[in-house]
């Protein structure tokens, strides 16, 4: 059962990622990316990370993708001419090298059926969200505050970049 779910979600993720690269129209690419995010959320549910599945749907599919769609529609550029870059032969060499690398690694991997379960005594038997909340607000409190600072700087920077036209011209 779990194997079938993994096959479905993994196959859909890889297929929609290929479509993101393949489509010429940016709107189609963004929609394929939406499908990819949703299926990755399904993978998180299989992996018993329900909180991250919710965050993935809210932040990636809800916020980031809408931002992309806004910008694509705002720019409204018709894709004309070639759609690949100019240095494509060099890039093809690099891409084929990376693909051969990954495939060789996978061929040399022994696909172990199952890792032995490692008991973790420190973590109490709580739900996923409770455990993440406990660890995030005690052990990782300082990085959490830094993350909020990063978001604040990104907010200010995005406003300055998107609206500072009159000052710089």
């Amino acid at each position: 059962m779990q194997m079938a779910l993994f096959a479905y979600f993994g196959g859909a993720v890889v297929l929609s990622a290929l479509f993101v690269v393949y489509f010429r129209n940016p709107i189609y690419s963004a929609m394929s990316l939406l499908a990819m995010f949703m299926h990755i959320a399904g993978l998180y549910v299989i992996l018993e990370a329900e909180f991250l599945a919710g965050v993935q749907l809210l932040v990636y599919a809800g916020a980031i993708l809408v931002l992309y769609l806004f910008v694509v529609m705002l720019l409204n550029v018709q894709s004309r001419g070639r759609f690949l870059q100019r240095q494509t032969p060099l890039v093809a060499v690099i891409g084929i090298f990376a693909a051969v690398d990954v495939i060789a690694l996978l061929l040399h991997t022994r696909f172990y059926p199952e890792l032995p379960a490692i008991p973790h005594p420190g973590v109490p038997t709580l739900g996923n969200s409770e455990t993440i909340g406990m660890v995030l607000y005690t052990q990782y409190l300082f990085p959490f505050e830094i993350a909020s600072l990063v978001l604040l700087i990104a907010l200010v920077g995005a406003i300055v970049l998107a609206k500072g036209k009159l000052k710089y011209r």
């Binding site: 973790h120 993440i132 990782y140 993350a147 990104a154 995005a158």
Partner: peptide, 25 residues
């Protein structure tokens, strides 16, 4: 059975959101 990796994913999502805002700007 380590919960810390999921917190790292949380931070990665935060950085991705910041990167998207700045990059699109």
């Amino acid at each position: 059975h380590v919960i810390d990796a999921q917190i790292f994913v949380f931070f990665v999502i935060t950085v991705a959101a910041a990167e998207v805002a700045i990059g699109l700007g």
